[in-house]
Design a protein around this nucleic acid. Structure first.
Lengths: 225, 225
DNA sequence: AAATATTTTTAGACTTGCCTAAAAATTTAT
DNA sequence: ATAAATTTTTAGGCAAGTCTAAAAATATTT
């Protein structure tokens, strides 16, 4: 239970994100590009994490987290999302400003701190981007009715319940077009040639959204139009 | 203005604390014992900080901070003390629990974060141990009338305005004997043979405090008895 | 003021986490 | 199914920050 380096924690977190709910094996290059390092560095670290029994790793075959590795990864994600919630709800940060600071704060090592923060924030279930916050025991409640805006049916009204926080540019774009969490929009038409989509926000505003945008927005079905 | 490693920041902070208000030169061994490293490590790092123009260092003669080094040190201390205040005032930590966590939090690099936190806490002037919190510009308001309990006159009533946070054991001791910030006590008698001191707390309780204790408590004179 | 003791620095080594370049394995394409 | 392309690993190196042991400088004692 001795503590891990920031680097090790980042690897675990990223492996968790990449393997997704499908428990896919994660490739070396995949990790390298997400972590902005070279493949050879990944190989080194996977050896090390494998020795520590935090990942299962087979040469040339990629890796996945062990139970213990996953437990740790989820706790880091819990910290990240609680800190983001703190920054937005208590310190009035914008949702596009919190990611980088949370990347630092997530490595602070104090169980008491994070549990106190959780209580202080009133046990929030979702962070400012709509991602679920794991509880103290690592339980994550995924919003079951959530789909990508990309996959929403035409002529339906949906509500934005999640946005991908990875891209600062996307978050700024959404902010600018009033596409914030909780916003309702109507899916008007899809254009197969570029997978773009026209939506209406509010009464008047009609916007065409690229695939890049719609695949990074999570929505919940509200009603047929 | 590029950012420093945690280690470099800790060195600057510690040099600041050791040189005190007197601007003493700081010795290699002095630093080594405070930073729990060996003297040889100190020498290495002083070379480096000297190259970066953050300390003035002369071989065998110790070091002191440059203006820039001091500026940075004060900002780290500002962060440390604001975080301690947050932990105690908002997350209900005890004053003896905050030091270690604050040692981590003080390295989080975000000016916006720390300034937001300052506002959120309502621009506190002192941290939970009574130490002054530097403002955004690095200005520190030292409590003018503060003296060590060790030096308080017999037959005087004083108020505790500061305790040294370095020793967890001391803080627990003080907590246990109700010697918290703001407590008033009467200096009854001093015993030169061991520099201990008898004080009365409240109406009844009389305690003998060792030099180790009284030299780590700051008090303000209230009245003659 | 010499001799001794203490402090500080140097020299060489280790670990972590990263890199580049080259080799090996795997995958894809012909 | 072999050749070509891609992915992954190995090998060797580098910087940061630490260590131990030995040498050099400074301070203290007699």
């Amino acid at each position: 239970m001795k503590s891990l380096s920031h680097s090790e924690e980042n690897y675990l977190k990223e492996i968790f994100h990449l393997s997704g709910l499908t428990e896919k094996r994660v490739s070396t290059n995949g990790l390298a590009s997400r972590l902005n390092t070279k493949a050879s560095s990944i190989t080194d670290m996977l050896q090390k994490l494998s020795d520590k029994k935090l990942v299962e790793y087979v040469k040339y075959k990629g890796c996945f987290l062990t139970e213990e590795g996953e437990r740790i990864a989820i706790q880091i994600i819990r910290k990240h999302r609680l800190w983001e919630t703190f920054l937005v709800n208590k310190l009035s940060f914008g949702w596009e400003e919190v990611h980088d600071v949370a990347e630092q704060l997530e490595h602070i090592d104090s169980e008491k701190l994070i549990d106190s923060l959780d209580r202080f924030l009133n046990y929030p279930k979702f962070d400012p981007h709509g991602d679920p916050i794991p509880d103290k025991d690592g339980k994550i409640v995924y919003r079951k009715s959530k789909i990508k805006l990309l996959d929403a049916a035409t002529n339906s009204r949906v509500e934005i319940v999640r946005v991908n926080e990875d891209s600062l540019a996307l978050l700024k774009f959404l902010e600018r077009h009033q596409l914030t969490l909780g916003t309702e929009l109507d899916v008007l038409e899809k254009f197969p040639f570029d997978d773009s989509m026209s939506v209406r926000v509010g009464e008047l505003l009609e916007i065409n959204l690229s695939k890049k945008v719609t695949e990074n927005i999570g929505v919940k079905f509200i009603s047929k139009l």
